[in-house]
C-alpha cells in the first residue's frame, strides 16, 4: 500500500513540475511575442497619434516594464493559488471573464467525453464480437474515415446535414456566454457530436484491439467453457482488461479537447473558452492567456492522474509492479 502511495506521490510531484514548466513556457511565449496589450487595444488609426513616450508611459503604468523573473514569479504564485489577477486594460478580474466560458467548455468537454465513451464502448464491444465480420468491417471502415477528417471539416459537414438540410439543429449558437446551463447543454449537441467523432474513432480502435485480444485469451476461453453467457464474459472479464490501453488514449483525448474545442467553438460560435482564448491572444490579454493555458494544463494533468488511478484499479499487474517498487 505504501508503495502505491509513493507512486501516487511521485505522480503528484511530476504533475506539479509539469504545471510549473507549462506556466514558464506560457509566460515566456507571451513575453517574447511582438506587441502587447497597449498596442493591440488602441485602434490602428489612433495609434499614429500616440508618441513612443506615451506608449512607454502606458506600459509602465501596466507593469509591463519590470524584469522578467520578477514578473514570472508573480505569475507562478498567482496561477498556483488560482488568483488569476485582472485584465491589463480594464483591470477587471480575469476569473470573471473566463468563468462562464470555462464552465461552458467544461459542459462541452464533459458531454463529449461521456458520449465518446458510450459510443466507443458500444461500438468496440459490437465490433469485437465477430472480428472481420460485416459489422466489424463497417464500423472499422467508418471510424477510419472519420478519424482522418479534421474537426473543422466534421463540424461543417454536420452543419450542412443537420442544420441546413434537415433543419434539426441550429448552425450558429446564439446563447449568450452567461446563459442558463440547460440552454448551453441543449445548444451543445451538434458541437459535442463534432468534437467526439474524431476522438471516438481513435478510442474505438484501441478498445476493439484490446477486446479482440482479451476475447481470444485463455481466461476468457475458460469462462466460455464454464458456460458463462457472452455478454457477461465481455463486460465482466474482457472489457476491464481491454479498457487499459484505451484509458491512456482517453487522457490524450482530454488534451486534444482544448485544441479541438477551439475549432469546433469557432465553427458553431459556441460560447466557450476556446473562443475566449483566441480573443485573448488577438488582444494580447496576457493574464487571460496564462490563466486559460494553466487551467487547460491542469485539466490534462488531472485527466492523466485519474487515468493512472483507473489503470491501477483495473490492472493487477500495475498494482503488483507498484508494490514491488
Amino acid at each position: 500500500m505504501g508503495s502505491i502511495m509513493n507512486m501516487l506521490g511521485r505522480r503528484l510531484i511530476l504533475s506539479f513540475a509539469i504545471l510549473s514548466l507549462t506556466s514558464l513556457i506560457v509566460f515566456l511565449g507571451t513575453e517574447v511575442l511582438p506587441g502587447d496589450a497597449i498596442t493591440a487595444t488602441i485602434p490602428a488609426e489612433e495609434l499614429a497619434f500616440y508618441t513612443p513616450e506615451q506608449l512607454a508611459d502606458l506600459r509602465k503604468e501596466y507593469g509591463l516594464d519590470r524584469p522578467l523573473p520578477v514578473r514570472f514569479l508573480e505569475v507562478w504564485e498567482r496561477l498556483f493559488t488560482f488568483d488569476f489577477g485582472t485584465t491589463l486594460i480594464k483591470k477587471e478580474p480575469v476569473l470573471d471573464h473566463i468563468a462562464h466560458p470555462m464552465i461552458n467548455s467544461g459542459i462541452l468537454a464533459g458531454l463529449a467525453m461521456l458520449v465518446m465513451l458510450g459510443l466507443v464502448l458500444v461500438l468496440g464491444i459490437l465490433a469485437s464480437l465477430k472480428p472481420g465480420g460485416r459489422l466489424d468491417t463497417a464500423i472499422s471502415a467508418t471510424t477510419l474515415f472519420t478519424y482522418s477528417m479534421p474537426d473543422f471539416v466534421v463540424g461543417n459537414v454536420f452543419v450542412v446535414i443537420f442544420a441546413v438540410w434537415l433543419g434539426l439543429t441550429p448552425a450558429v449558437i446564439f446563447a449568450p456566454t452567461n446563459a442558463p446551463k440547460l440552454t448551453i447543454l441543449l445548444a451543445s449537441l451538434l458541437p459535442v457530436a463534432a468534437l467526439c467523432i474524431h476522438g471516438a474513432a481513435y478510442q474505438f480502435r484501441l478498445l476493439r484491439a484490446g477486446m479482440v485480444e482479451a476475447l481470444n485469451s485463455d481466461y476468457v476461453e475458460r469462462a466460455r467453457l464454464a458456460g458463462l453467457p457472452t455478454w457477461y464474459i465481455c463486460i465482466r472479464h474482457a472489457l476491464p482488461v481491454a479498457m487499459i490501453p484505451m484509458l491512456n488514449g482517453t487522457a490524450q483525448f482530454v488534451a486534444g479537447l482544448l485544441s479541438g474545442s477551439v475549432v469546433v467553438e469557432t465553427v458553431f460560435k459556441y460560447p466557450g473558452v476556446g473562443s475566449e482564448l483566441l480573443r485573448a491572444l488577438a488582444q494580447r490579454e496576457i493574464p487571460t492567456i496564462q490563466a486559460i493555458a494553466f487551467l487547460a494544463a491542469l485539466a490534462v494533468v488531472t485527466a492523466n492522474f485519474i487515468a493512472d488511478l483507473a489503470i491501477l484499479g483495473l490492472d493487477p499487474r500495475v498494482r503488483a509492479s507498484a508494490q514491488h517498487g
Partner: peptide, 20 residues
C-alpha cells in the same frame, strides 16, 4: 434586432440555415 459577430464560414452557415 439582433446582431452577432461571426467568422466568414459561420456567417454562411447561419445564413444558409435561416438563422441569419
Amino acid at each position: 434586432l439582433e446582431g452577432y459577430i461571426v467568422n466568414s464560414q459561420t456567417a454562411v452557415n447561419g445564413f444558409r440555415s435561416g438563422q441569419f
